[in-house]
């Protein structure tokens, strides 16, 4: 309430956010990349990545977060994720079937580089979900501001 000029929450929240937000992002990326080995995967990791940006926005205000990832960029990333997923599926035609796991044989099981196209699909889903969820959050916030102006 005191610092009306500076957007966002108090100094304590900001400091804690500065410390944790990177960790949250890293944890999200970890979950995405290990999606084929441990619980989690593209959707859960994408949500965590989106949450790190939402966290940033809550603590520092709208502008800081939008400078890192603007709404147009988010929607472009979202479409790219969807297209990537579709093209991975289409590449399966190389093996003869739609969605065919065409290099499943490479790599040893339970390694990071294994499971063929599943990690690729996870990354695509993560892009789609992360960017999409962030865009949804921004859109809902913009609604609120629109109403205040009136």
């Amino acid at each position: 309430m005191e610092n009306k000029k500076e957007p966002g929450m108090t100094l304590i929240v900001k400091t804690i956010t500065r410390l944790t937000v990177g960790l949250i992002l890293l944890y999200g990326i970890y979950i995405v990349l290990h999606g084929h080995l441990t619980p989690g995967g593209g959707f859960a990791g994408g949500v965590i990545i989106a949450l790190s940006f939402v966290h940033l926005m809550l603590a520092f205000g709208r502008e800081t977060a939008l400078k890192k990832l603007s709404q147009t960029k988010a929607s472009i990333l979202e479409s790219l994720g969807a297209l990537m997923f579709l093209s991975v599926a289409l590449l399966g035609f190389l093996g003869g079937f739609f969605f065919f796991n065409f290099f499943a044989q490479k790599g040893t099981p339970f390694d990071l580089f294994s499971a063929g196209i599943i990690p690729l699909c996870n990354i695509a889903i993560c892009l789609k979900v992360g960017a999409g969820l962030f865009a949804i959050f921004v859109a809902l916030i913009l609604f609120k501001n629109l109403k205040k102006k009136e």
Binding site: E78, S79, L80, A82, L83, L86, F98
Partner: peptide, 21 residues
């Protein structure tokens, strides 16, 4: 044989391309 998935792939691909460009 190959035509069956195309019924889903073409509109989906079109939709995401449109949202991009």
């Amino acid at each position: 044989m190959m035509i069956l998935p195309l019924f889903v792939v073409i509109p989906l691909g079109g939709a995401f391309l449109l949202s991009l460009i």
